[in-house]
């Protein structure tokens, strides 16, 4: 790979930049500075231990989420590979402080939690493992309230196409 070719600015570069951004967001860069009532700075071990999605959300945020079309959850209808299902969440809600992604049928529902410093664009993407057909839920914390979107991802044995 040439170090100075124009590819610096292509998709790969953008991918890397995005990857870096999401690492920063995911590790909570800066969020100890603004400890809100509902987002503890410590690793939320309890929430990740909850079996069901409702319990995980309650443990994390102390409240339940309301479905909102302002939460954009992108996931395949049928997974090409259940071991690495691409899921992305974005929103145009203002004052986003956290995004959680949950996989209802997994042994522990909470799959990922991202916390946002003020001014960070609220867009995250991850690849999640799911052994069987399951609802995937995105929860956005914005302005102290919770909003969610749900999509079913089908995990199939495959084959037998037309």
């Amino acid at each position: 790979m040439a170090a100075y070719d124009s590819k610096m600015f292509d998709r790969r570069f953008v991918l890397r930049a995005a990857g870096l951004g999401s690492v920063l967001a995911a590790t909570g860069f800066g969020f100890p500075l603004r400890a809100s009532a509902s987002t503890a700075a410590a690793y939320p071990a309890d929430a990740f231990k909850q079996k069901g999605e409702a319990d995980a959300v309650k443990t994390l945020f102390g409240q339940a989420a309301t479905a909102s079309d302002k939460v954009k959850l992108d996931a395949p209808e049928i997974a090409e590979n259940g071991a690495v299902v691409p899921v992305s969440v974005s929103t145009d809600l203002p004052d986003v402080t956290a995004i959680a992604i949950l996989v209802a049928e997994n042994p522990s529902a909470l799959a990922a939690l991202y916390k946002f410093a003020p001014g960070t664009p609220p867009t995250v993407a991850s690849r999640l493992k799911m052994a069987k057909t399951t609802p995937v839920i995105a929860v956005v914390e914005a302005g102290g309230k919770l909003y969610s979107a749900t999509r079913e991802v089908k995990v199939t044995v495959g084959g037998c196409g037309g």
């Binding site: 049928i78 199939t156 037998c160 196409g161 037309g162």
Partner: peptide, 25 residues
């Protein structure tokens, strides 16, 4: 049984986005 149910859902899931086309195995 689980294979047959799985393929059957690819054919008869009420939401077409979860169907793959093709017929029952």
């Amino acid at each position: 049984r689980s294979i047959l149910e799985d393929v059957c859902d690819n054919l008869f899931n009420p939401d077409p986005y979860y169907q793959q086309g093709g017929d029952m195995v």
